[in-house]
Simulated assay, not measured.
Amino acid sequence: MFSVRFSIDVRLRGKVFVGVGVVRNVRNSEYPGGLLSVIDDTVREVRSRYSLDSLKDDPIIRYYRDFYWHELGIDPTKQRPAQEALLRRVLRGEDLPRINPMVDIGNAASIKYLVPIGLYDIDSFGGRDLVISYARDGEVFNPIGSPRKSLTSNQIILSTVDGLILHVYPYRDSETTKMRPETRNVLIVTAGVPGIDEDRLVNSAQFIINLAVKYLGGNAHVNPTVVRDERDINA
């Protein structure tokens, strides 16, 4: 049983919100052929829908770029929003990276729905309550594939209530809580910003759950939900 209180700091309510889902008992160590076909179909779908030239004018991409500029102080033409970077890779003719089945499902969802996707190994953070808040100056984060970083107070983080950082919002996940071949229980967080509709966050999380259940043997007992302030997540 997974039960966690998921909350958003009052200073960030209205600025960020998330779709949250849980899938349990996945087999994340091998790729069923059918899953690879679904991912390839998703790549073909987005290539038929978008182009590199027109991407900057897509309203969903614009909402995340505006959030980078105005809330994070990041130039989104120099550091692309995570989902835009993935989509640009695909539109240049490259494949999505092969990491492990759950990560690859998340990446497919990200380019299909144009939202950042975070996937976290529930057992790695012990199912502790979670909060989205501003970081403290000097707080240390251990990002996937990079040295530890010292954060500043204008950065937004998803962390356990006792300080384990899962994510720098909405673009960088933690080495500590990442998907591994042995991961069994997965927390899905789809990151929203002003202008994004709730259905997009819910549908992207549901897409991930559906594929994990169908191809990785997972099970899900609750539908994804949106958190704008605080909510109990039970699965």
Score class of each variant (00 low, 15 high):
Val222Glu: 15
Lys214Leu: 14
Val202Asp: 05
Ile209Pro: 01
Lys214Ser: 14
Pro224Ile: 03
Thr190Asp: 13
Val222Ala: 14
Thr176Asn: 09
Leu211Trp: 06
Val189Gly: 01
Gly195Asn: 11
Val193Glu: 01
Asn203Ser: 14
Val222Pro: 03
Leu201Thr: 03
Lys178Thr: 13
Gly218Trp: 01
His221Phe: 15
Ala220His: 07
Ala212Thr: 04
Pro224Met: 00
Leu187Pro: 00
Lys214Tyr: 03
Leu187Gln: 05
Ile208Arg: 00
Phe207Ser: 01
Met179Arg: 02
Gly192Ser: 09
Phe207Lys: 00
Glu182Lys: 08
Val222Asp: 11
Thr225Pro: 10
Pro194His: 11
Asp197Asn: 14
Ile208Pro: 00
Glu198Asn: 13
Tyr215Arg: 05
Ala220Pro: 04
Leu211His: 08
Asn185Cys: 08
Ile208Val: 15
Ile209Arg: 01
Arg184Phe: 02
Asn203Met: 13
Asn185Gly: 04
Pro194Asn: 11
Ala191Arg: 08
Pro224Gly: 03
Val189Thr: 09
Ala191Phe: 14
Gln206Val: 09
Gly192Met: 06
Val213Trp: 11
Ala205Lys: 02
Gln206Glu: 15
Val222Arg: 15
Ser204Pro: 12
Val193Leu: 08
Asn223Val: 05
Val186Ile: 14
Gly192Arg: 00
Thr183Ala: 10
Asp197Tyr: 11
Leu211Asp: 01
Val213Thr: 12
Ala205Glu: 07
Gly218Ile: 02
Lys214Ala: 15
Thr225Arg: 08
Ala220Met: 08
Asn219Arg: 14
Asn219Met: 11
Val186Asp: 04
Asn219Pro: 04
Asn210Gln: 15
Val186Thr: 06
Ile196Ala: 01
Ser204Asp: 08
Gly218Val: 00
Pro181Asp: 13
Arg184Ser: 11
Ile188Pro: 00
Lys214Asp: 11
Glu182Asn: 11
Arg200Leu: 15
Ala220Glu: 06
Glu175Arg: 13
Ala220Cys: 14
Val213Ile: 13
Leu211Pro: 05
Arg200His: 11
Ala191Tyr: 09
Thr177Ile: 12
Tyr215Cys: 06
Leu211Lys: 04
Ile209Leu: 07
Val193Arg: 04
Gly195Gln: 14
Val189Ala: 05
Met179Cys: 06
Arg184Ala: 08
Ala220Ile: 02
Val222Ser: 15
Ala212Asp: 07
Val213Leu: 09
Leu201Arg: 02
Ala205Gly: 10
Val193Pro: 12
Val186Lys: 02
